[in-house]
């Protein structure tokens, strides 16, 4: 993967400033956390990276590629996978069906090819890969069950599995621990670590759970009211007076 660089990004909705001159860099293979209080602009930042929001100013680049010129599906095809805060899966479909959606850009065939069963070999191969990814995340036993019938923790992992199924070089995780209990959160932390080391995928993580973030991240960027107030290693950030005031001070 190449670097993801956000430079002087600002985003306004009418009079509301969601992002104010944000800059940070996600290095290849790193585990980068984006933290901050509610409404600090973390999700907006993700939406800018994935092309859903167009910033009012600034640049977003992946290597030499200017992401702001691309439609969201093109951004995804460059190797940026994304898991959502509210999972955004299809509840009536099976886990496998949901995860297979991640293979969309890696496969071919429209209505006629599918209807005439010309893609059955391709379908089999990619289903096998999707099962492999589900096994890796520990939800292999649930692949053939409809998503709506499964516990929230499994749905969260299915969402991550779907993002991994796009074979990304950078994975965006939007509050993966939200709604999980302490044990599940610990398992998740281990899982994210494995994704980075075993699969060699850089991870950009938005998270509230400070323990999770400080335990696994290499780099932490702190947002408050749409601005970057600190950027550094977990140790640096934890002792930064601005951060303590704006965020950590509030929670402790």
């Amino acid at each position: 993967m190449t670097e993801l660089v956000l430079q002087n990004v600002s985003l306004r909705f009418g009079g509301l400033i969601a992002l104010d001159d944000i800059s940070f860099t996600v290095s290849p293979g790193s585990l980068h956390a984006l933290i901050g209080p509610n409404g600090a602009g973390k999700s907006s930042c993700f939406n800018v990276i994935s092309g859903l929001y167009r910033p009012t100013a600034g640049t977003v680049r992946l290597g030499v590629q200017d992401l702001l010129r691309l439609a969201p599906h093109r951004v995804a095809r460059l190797g940026i996978g994304r898991a959502f805060q509210n999972t955004a899966l299809s509840p009536h479909s099976t886990v496998l069906d949901n995860v297979l959606l991640g293979r969309h850009a890696l496969t071919r065939g429209g209505f006629l090819a599918g209807g005439l069963r010309l893609t059955s070999r391709q379908e089999r191969l990619h289903a096998a890969r999707a099962r492999e990814i589900c096994d890796f995340l520990g939800i292999g036993a649930s692949v053939d069950r409809p998503l709506g019938a499964l516990p929230y923790g499994v749905a969260k992992l299915a969402d991550i599995a779907r993002a991994l199924a796009t074979e990304p070089s950078l994975l965006l995780l939007d509050e993966p621990a939200a709604g999980l209990n302490t044990d599940e959160t610990a398992e998740l932390a281990a899982m994210i670590g494995q994704i980075r080391t075993d699969l060699d995928i850089a991870v950009l993580l938005v998270e509230h759970d400070m323990e999770l973030v400080m335990g696994i991240a290499d780099q932490v960027t702190v947002l408050d009211f749409g601005r970057v107030i600190a950027d550094g290693t977990p140790a640096d950030v934890q002792t930064d007076p601005d951060v303590v005031k704006a965020y950590l001070g509030v929670t402790t």
């Binding site: 969201p72 599906h73 995804a76 959502f84 955004a88 899966l89 299809s90 959606l101 991640g102 796009t166």
Partner: peptide, 14 residues
């Protein structure tokens, strides 16, 4: 089905 259930998520999957 992805377009039906969530257009943003569909786009994020390519």
């Amino acid at each position: 089905r992805a377009v039906r259930d969530n257009e943003a998520a569909a786009a994020a999957m390519g």
